[in-house]
Design a protein around this nucleic acid. Structure first.
Lengths: 191, 191
DNA sequence: GTCTATAATTCGATAGAC
DNA sequence: GTCTATCGAATTATAGAC
């Protein structure tokens, strides 16, 4: 009887993982168009044709490399006055600990598939988290969108465009300035 | 005696202007890498080699097409309580009335020269405007950086990534939500 | 000033040997 | 599973005729 549910890791798994790691680095550093399959394969120390074999196309490789979970905390367990502070700190950690988000943001400006993925992450994952304490769906979506706008702008200026005063700010100060903004988008009202 | 300061517009001026207009459109829609000289030339109804002749290279063309003046109002003449509201409204108008900013933002994610230009615009022009009522230079730069982060995040989600709840918001509501944020970044203090 | 022709690369993707 | 060899297409940029 042959294995129908093979627990044995295939030999190719290590290669696949190396490809994904190299792909995230290149996409994060160069964006979608300038990150070439050849360069990614060279980083992973394998042949370019292996990338095609495993992921079918450059689009397929990006789709696999750009999977991402924001790992948002359960907001119902956060004191309601500390929602903004908590979220900003979490996003800073998440952004600096995993280059996938940078790859996604760099690629999203020019690649429609990447923009789709970005919309999905911030609409679905962030939207769901905000909905846990929200009222009507329309307001919830708007609050999540405003939070996304501020967080993505912070990420763009800190990690992509690298605006000097934003890059220079220590994390605690970022939290001090941006935290209240997020807090108001989540629990406040306009004007 | 020959003209030393020729007031006569050269014949090629119309061609140059057409190229720049087409270049801004293409760079705004496709980003730096995907916008090709051939496509830009086709839009402008001229030969691709003319682009090279007039602007030397693709980089040179982008540099010429991405010149931009934020046209910020004199902030000393704005009532101090309406600074945020005024700036958000101004940025929305500026963004929707000229596609150069969208071209710049799309390109800045992958092209170092475009990122440089973006840093220049938001550090120099916005920084100078904020400095008109600021105190010490370090604080002024930080305030300008925070404003840039929120404004660029709004632009990214509204015009590039097109996050549905942000796209759906009427301008007045954007001003209502984001205006107070800008106001606090300009005149408030962290937490 | 405008265009034709083409050089010189580079890329994604495929075919097939081993 | 891995690699060699290569195709076909697209790009920026140049040389030079008219």
């Amino acid at each position: 009887m042959t294995d129908t549910a093979p627990a044995r890791p295939r030999r190719s798994d290590a290669t696949r993982a190396a490809i994904l790691r190299a792909a995230r680095e290149r996409f994060a550093a160069d964006g979608y168009e300038r990150a070439t399959i050849r360069a990614i394969a060279a980083d992973a120390r394998i042949d370019p044709s292996m990338v095609m074999r495993y992921y079918g196309s450059k689009e397929g490789l990006f789709a696999a490399a750009a999977e991402f979970d924001l790992r948002l905390p359960d907001l119902t367990r956060v004191p309601s006055g500390q929602l903004g502070e908590t979220l900003v700190r979490h996003f800073l950690d998440r952004w600096e600990g995993d280059e996938t988000l940078a790859a996604l943001l760099r690629a999203a400006s020019t690649n429609p598939g990447a923009a789709d993925r970005m919309r999905g992450i911030f609409a679905d994952q962030l939207g769901a988290a905000v909905a846990t304490f929200g009222t009507d769906p329309e307001t919830t979506a708007r609050r999540a969108g405003l939070v996304a706008a501020q967080i993505l702008g912070l990420a763009l200026t800190r990690y992509i465009v690298r605006l000097p005063p934003i890059v220079a700010m220590p994390p605690a100060e970022v939290v001090g300035w941006v935290g209240p903004t997020i807090q108001r988008y989540l629990t406040g009202s306009p004007d």
